[in-house]
Design a protein around this nucleic acid. Sequence first.
DNA 1: ACGACATATTGACAAATTTCAATTTGTGTG
DNA 2: CACACAAATTGAAATTTGTCAATATGTCGT
Lengths: 103, 103
Amino acid sequence: MELTNKHITVIFKALCDENRVQIVRLLQNGEKCACKLLEALQCTQPTLSHHMKILCDSGLVVGRKEGKWMYYSISADGTEEAVNVLRELTKVGISESGGCCCK
Amino acid sequence: MELTNKHITVIFKALCDENRVQIVRLLQNGEKCACKLLEALQCTQPTLSHHMKILCDSGLVVGRKEGKWMYYSISADGTEEAVNVLRELTKVGISESGGCCCK
DNA sequence: ACGACATATTGACAAATTTCAATTTGTGTG
DNA sequence: CACACAAATTGAAATTTGTCAATATGTCGT
């Protein structure tokens, strides 16, 4: 599979915002409905909805609809992929000869 | 050690920008001087300098000054910490009972 | 000390992101 | 069907981020 810079940024943009990091932490002890997240966070419902969209788009979180409620949880597949992407991206390969391009 | 949401965002903000992701990829085959990065990227020198600062602040990249040149490379320690942080953050613990808070 | 060069910093502007109020969509219940 | 409720979408304002031109800082060679 290809791994564009764009795709990589989508994954890590999810964790660029303190509120979203907090949301992930809240999901660490299991699936939670949106309203529970909403009362834990200090933001409005549309703002939470926006953050959840970004988290879901990144693949780190998955949503499950049940009636009028929305349940969110950490995606094992998504987070594993994120760790792999981060490891791949920061893996150092064949070291080139040093020296500067400028004379 | 403590691990604030703020600290976590600093790490992952580094990988939020396509140019910075590209820079990390360029560093994968060894240390590079700023001017070499500059000719690979399509941006001005101040912009590159700005991105390098963010990458260094995140700990993922380290800089080494040699004369008038600046050499950058991927930090093994920094990237290992980033992977650990990501794994810690996305680790699912004791699953709580399901159900919605709303009646 | 002076000039040339590499990098960093400053200031300004454009683009993207975060946030909320208002509204819409979707779902279940009386 | 009408109402109530949960979540998503829209649109606008405030903030943050990315970018560049201009300038400053630091280093080397003459």
